[in-house]
Amino acid sequence: MSRRRALSRYLAARVALAPLMLWLIASMVFLLLRLAPGDPIDALLGTRAPESARAALRTQLGLDQPLLHQYGSFLGKLLHGDLGTSLTNQEPVTEVIRQSLPASLELGVVALLLAAVVGLAVGFSGIARPEGKLDLAGRLYGIGTYALPPFWAAMVVQLVFAVWLGWLPVGGRFPPTLLPPEGSGFYLFDSLRSGLATGEWQLLLGSVRHLVLPAATLGLLLSGIFANSLRLNLRRTLGSDYVEAARSRGLGEARVVLRHALPNALLPVLTITGITVASLIGGALLIEITYSWPGIAFRLQEAIGQRDYPLVQGIVVVVAGLVVLVTVLVDLLVAVLDPRIKF
């Protein structure tokens, strides 16, 4: 089979698997929430609530219907992008998510860019002398950034830079005295646009000042993954035959590393970071709570505290869906980019 046909078959299979995984996740979350011991009504209202209020809430949540019926209507609504209504403020769950997702994405993207730059630099620095001091430091950097509990690292950073030194705000996403910019919900982008339109740069300064600490913390924590995977892959590539051949042709070491080894070492880095970052985001985003950054993890914590079942269910389904999407996209990207992969 020609490579192109094999490639498109692989892509099709990978894409077809994604909805299956999404369906599995949605079903799992649904089933777990329904089959768990304990009545959600008890959790919401307490055991001493009057029977009429309990019955009303049960009807509102559809809990009086048979399980199969509930499942059917859950899936049907999900297909139409309806995740139910939040119990605490009666807003549609999708609306709550739509409001908090841009904040998380903004933080995540800036942090990832930072992580890539710092991580690749650290991973690359030890390559000149394997097993040397710099190499060992890179290894320790990888383990150390992994071992730091994200929310705790954020608390320490917050203490030093916001509380003691007072350089930057302690938390939040925008100065409370200013009105946040209108538009897409990505404050950095919105305030830049309003700055360009009005010539007032206060908004941009405010959002940047609030973003610095969370993004730097998250970026440094995630950079360890980049550093580690580049270090390991670069070493493996540098030991391979074609690099040896390039060296014996008399090419300079810098040219061998940069032109011959680095491109091949970067592709696996893409896969590994894609998968790890996707799964790590769930944990690392806990720093949103430390910095009161009004993103998706912050809302999740609120929803957990208020035992808001539909909101918890909705956030989990959406975040899991995003993660599956990112994983599939990275797989596709690598398959297209790397001519060595056989299917």
């Binding site: 995984m21 304990g38 996707a278 985001i281 944990g283 918890v312 899991a320 994983t327």
Partner: peptide, 22 residues
């Protein structure tokens, strides 16, 4: 397929759902 799906999910998200329920 089931295990791969579980494996794809962010670690914390999975245990959050369960801890929330249990």
């Amino acid at each position: 397929l089931l295990m791969d799906t579980l494996y794809t999910l962010p670690v914390l998200l999975l245990s959050v759902v369960l801890a929330f329920l249990l």
